[in-house]
Amino acid sequence: MLASLEGLDHLVVMVRNLDAAADRWRALGFTLSPRGTHSAHLGTGNYTIMFGVDYVELLGVLHETELNAPSRAFLDRRGEGIERAAFTTSDAVAGVSALRARGIDARAPIEFSRPVDLPGGRRAEAAFSVFHWPVEQRPADLRIFACQHHTRDTVWMPGLQTHPNTATGLACVEIVTPTPAEAAAQLAGLIDGRAQPCDAGVRVATAPGRGDFLFLTQDAFIARRPSAPREALPAEGVAALVLHVADLGAAARSAGAAAVVGASSVTVGADRASGAMVVFEPRDPIEPKSINEK
């Protein structure tokens, strides 16, 4: 991968109402961080769902700024859903230099922070440096950026990493597009990765132990996820987030009536999860009977 990149870091779910979205994700068995407010020039707030090395971010616009204009445009165009994918970077300045050396016009890193409530009533700051690929270079309508965490201990707090549904991390981002090969090749070119054809579509891996991207046609996605209504799919964009879980039975019980239980997965429709289907799958194969064991 591109110099300084270390794999998929987190996914940004754009939502219209932060607190309502947080309630929906809690109802699926996720532990959420307290609500955060970013630096004023970003104009956004968030909740995070933390795993071992990666996470999901629910992001809402609190007031309009130049920097959140692309996110507002996404909400106007698509509605709620996964708008961005972030890669971990060990050095945001080096990452920008590497992109510019490849002829990609990346802006200087953006610095920002948000206050964090710590156990025992203490408060601290979570600080970040991020850089974005140009907004027009978004494979299958997915923007990408990179995030350098300066204060990992204020983000990956142990109490936030245990979930009633037993989710442990990002497995795959499933993206529908009329042109999977072209979209995958575009993403691979932007991160200096590889696009590899597979049975379902074209896959772009990020790093060992980190989530990857799977590009599919709508027909291939429906064949893979038959509970998804075709009319609810975007013409192009993220259709499903696949998460590893330790216990599929716990995932099914946590999701309750929202769960569609299959032989080796538990699925929650996009209407229950802010615009993107959520699929729980075990890291290792299991016997189908264990999904429903109490």
Rank of each mutant, 00 (worst) to 15 (best):
I82P: 00
A86E: 05
A86Q: 12
T88M: 02
T88V: 09
T88W: 06
S90D: 13
S90W: 01
A92F: 13
A94M: 11
G95L: 12
G95P: 04
S97L: 04
L99K: 00
R100V: 07
R100Y: 05
R100Q: 07
A101C: 08
R102A: 14
G103D: 07
G103H: 08
I104M: 06
I104C: 07
I104D: 05
D105H: 09
A106Y: 11
R107G: 13
E111S: 12
F112N: 05
R114N: 13
R114M: 06
P115D: 09
V116P: 14
V116Q: 13
D117Q: 10
P119A: 11
G120T: 06
G120F: 07
G121Q: 07
R123V: 04
R123K: 14
R123C: 03
A124M: 11
A126I: 01
F128A: 08
S129E: 15
S129A: 12
F131N: 02
H132M: 05
H132Y: 14
P134H: 05
E136R: 03
Q137M: 09
R138I: 01
R143I: 00
R143F: 00
A146M: 12
A146F: 11
C147V: 02
H149I: 02
H149F: 05
H149M: 02
H150N: 05
T154D: 15
W156D: 03
W156T: 06
M157D: 01
G159E: 15
Q161E: 12
Q161C: 11
Q161S: 14
H163Q: 09
P164K: 04
T166D: 04
A167S: 13
T168G: 03
L170F: 14
L170G: 02
L170I: 15
A171P: 00
A171C: 12
C172A: 08
C172K: 10
C172P: 00
I175K: 01
T177I: 09
P178M: 11
P180R: 09
A181Y: 04
A184R: 10
A185Y: 00
Q186D: 10
Q186R: 09
Q186M: 13
L187D: 02
G189A: 12
L190C: 01
G193H: 11
R194A: 15
R194Q: 14
P197Y: 14
C198D: 15
C198L: 09
C198W: 11
C198Y: 10
V204A: 14
V204T: 06
A205K: 05
T206S: 08
